[in-house]
């Protein structure tokens, strides 16, 4: 996985709550057996008109958000289905950071597996960020994961919480599976005990 480094990037704004993973990546695009190429389908039903042309009304089609790497969104982003195609699409489109007041549980976990940093802020902070982005052209947010800080040209500067292991693994681009496999002897020991305690689970 690519290492997450501090950056200053354009932030796009979607002032919508409860954006579900069906909206992020619609079911007709879930049939692929690859992990790549989902960015072109991100927010498909909102982003495109019936004839396939971009829907000028849709937030991300606003030219002022071109090249954005940060997505600022309303409460409970990523609710619904467990599909990892959602963060795959977000990553492939070019975002590596999402800021909201809350994220759905499975989506939140899925982000970290794909080098995406979901940042949780207070409702007042989100409102201030949204106002600044809405009122100005191409607002660039500075994301400092090491020091857990988000700042804006307008003077907003807030810190955010993140579990230490998630931060460590993102910054170092670590492979989760590799980390667990390094504990194989512990897993072996646990499993031996598990077989003693729950032998009925080991009848195949």
């Amino acid at each position: 996985m690519e290492k997450y480094t501090n950056h200053t990037s354009v932030a796009a704004l979607m002032n919508r709550s409860n954006v579900d993973t069906d909206q992020i990546i619609a079911k007709q695009f879930l049939k692929k057996v690859e992990r790549t190429g989902f960015g072109q389908h991100l927010f498909h039903d909102w982003r495109f008109n019936e004839d396939g042309t971009p829907n000028a009304e849709f937030e991300l089609n606003n030219p002022k958000f071109d090249g954005a790497k940060v997505l600022v969104v309303g409460d409970n982003f990523g609710c619904g289905s467990s599909r990892e195609h959602a963060p795959w699409a977000i990553d492939d489109y070019g975002f590596n950071t999402i800021i909201s007041t809350s994220f759905a549980d499975i989506f939140y976990n899925n982000c970290f597996k794909n080098g995406i940093l979901p940042i949780i802020v207070e409702a007042d902070t989100l409102k201030a960020l949204m106002s600044e982005i809405a009122a100005n052209q191409g607002v660039e947010l500075s994301i400092d994961l090491e020091n857990q800080k988000v700042s804006t040209p307008g003077g907003i500067s807030v810190s955010f919480d993140i579990e230490g292991f998630r931060k460590h693994n993102l910054i170092n681009g670590l492979d989760d599976i590799g980390l667990t496999l390094a504990q194989t002897d512990r897993i072996d020991t646990y499993e031996a005990m598990h077989k003693e305690r729950f032998p009925w689970l080991w009848v195949s």
């Binding site: 467990s82 990892e84 579990e163």
Partner: peptide, 20 residues
Amino acid sequence: FGIGTSEVEHVMATQCLPQL
């Protein structure tokens, strides 16, 4: 509980999941 595809791979490889 539901998991993402990376975690599906994780469980296949290790029979474990990092969980809070």
